[in-house]
Simulated scan of single mutants.
Amino acid sequence: MSLHEDAVLTLKAYDGPADQSELRQLYLDHLAAQPEGVWKSCPTGHITASALVIDPSTERVLLTLHRKLGMWLQMGGHCEPQDSTLADAALREAWEESGVAGLRLLGSGAPVRLDRHPIPAPCHWHLDVQYAALAPVGSVAEISDESLDLRWFPYAEVPRVADTSVVRLLEATLAVL
């Protein structure tokens, strides 16, 4: 199965809140119209995958201070040819950006939220499929070249440091815990 096919199946199975149904359909329409819709090279926008990393005690989240955007965000990014599923892409991105090995997706391994956000040309949109991942006990986070900083935040601090997209992702993640 191709990554494109996995993305379609993942999104068809996504059982998010009612307010996400229109967005889910937008993602599916994008993939139906764009055979290359999972790749960064797609000019109208592309699917991305991310994961909010939760500490083993389930009391904190690991956020990265994104080098280009200067914002505290969950780990995530573009799909790569070696990714066989969106879940694989989310876990790979989370590992690359956090250095935390052995991450495990929460719940059934399904996405917890969708988020569409504009990006500068030449592309126009990131259609982010968001997961939540649990860090193993004893894991150590290491900053990557893509980050200015990497830090664990108690849940209550997230609204103070991150934008509403990250706050909504945290809320959706807490519903899965």
Results as ranks from 00 to 15, higher is better:
160 R>F: 08
64 T>N: 10
12 K>V: 12
130 Q>D: 14
122 P>Y: 05
30 H>P: 00
50 S>Y: 01
130 Q>M: 15
119 I>G: 02
91 L>C: 07
12 K>A: 07
110 A>C: 09
114 L>S: 03
52 L>T: 01
36 E>C: 08
89 A>L: 02
90 A>E: 06
170 L>V: 09
166 V>A: 06
111 P>I: 00
101 A>I: 15
53 V>S: 01
25 Q>E: 15
46 H>C: 03
123 C>G: 11
55 D>Q: 05
118 P>Y: 06
104 R>F: 00
98 S>I: 06
105 L>G: 02
112 V>R: 02
157 E>V: 07
119 I>M: 07
86 L>G: 04
122 P>R: 01
35 P>I: 00
160 R>C: 06
164 T>Q: 13
26 L>Y: 04
46 H>F: 15
61 V>F: 02
103 L>H: 06
7 A>Y: 05
6 D>R: 10
148 L>T: 07
134 L>S: 11
57 S>C: 11
2 S>P: 12
141 A>R: 11
147 S>Y: 01
13 A>C: 01
40 K>G: 11
30 H>D: 00
17 P>I: 12
1 M>H: 15
155 Y>G: 08
167 V>G: 02
148 L>W: 00
157 E>M: 09
121 A>I: 08
71 M>R: 15
150 L>T: 12
117 H>C: 05
95 W>D: 14
124 H>S: 13
5 E>F: 10
79 C>A: 15
25 Q>D: 15
154 P>M: 00
139 S>F: 04
126 H>N: 10
27 Y>F: 14
143 I>E: 07
53 V>I: 13
102 G>D: 10
89 A>E: 01
134 L>H: 06
122 P>C: 03
153 F>E: 01
107 G>P: 02
34 Q>G: 08
160 R>E: 12
120 P>K: 14
86 L>W: 02
24 R>A: 08
83 D>K: 04
132 A>C: 09
21 S>H: 13
83 D>H: 10
